[in-house]
Amino acid sequence: MIVLKTRQELERMRVAGRMVAEILAILREKVRPGVTTAELDRLAERECRKRKAAPAFKGYGGFPFSICASPNEKVVHGFPNAEPLREGDILSIDFGVLYNGFYGDAALTIPVGEISPQRKRLLEVTERSLAAAIDNMRLDARLGDVSHAVQSCVEPEGFSVVREFVGHGIGRKLHESPQVPNFGLPGQGPKLKAGMVLAIEPMINAGRPGVRILEDGWTAVTVDGKDSAHFEHTVALTENGPEILTRLQD
Rank of each mutant, 00 (worst) to 15 (best):
M1G: 14
M1H: 13
V3R: 15
R7T: 13
E9V: 02
M13R: 06
M19R: 10
E22D: 15
I26R: 10
R28E: 13
K30E: 15
P33Q: 00
G34Q: 06
T36Y: 10
E39K: 08
D41L: 04
A44M: 05
E45K: 08
R46N: 06
C48W: 01
K50C: 00
R51N: 03
K58W: 02
G59S: 06
P64D: 06
F65V: 01
I67Y: 06
A69K: 02
F79Q: 09
F79T: 01
P84V: 13
P84T: 12
P84L: 08
D89S: 07
I90K: 06
L91P: 10
F95Y: 13
G101S: 07
F102G: 00
Y103W: 07
Y103E: 05
G104A: 05
I110V: 12
V112N: 05
V112I: 05
E114W: 07
R128K: 15
S129K: 10
S129E: 10
A131F: 13
N136F: 08
N136K: 09
R142V: 08
R142M: 11
L143C: 02
E155A: 10
V161M: 13
R163E: 14
V166T: 14
G169Q: 02
L174C: 03
S177P: 08
P181W: 04
K191C: 11
L192V: 04
P209G: 07
E215Y: 14
V221R: 04
D224I: 04
G225C: 03
K226S: 09
D227L: 15
E239V: 12
E239K: 09
N240I: 00
N240T: 13
G241T: 02
E243F: 05
L248C: 08
D250M: 15
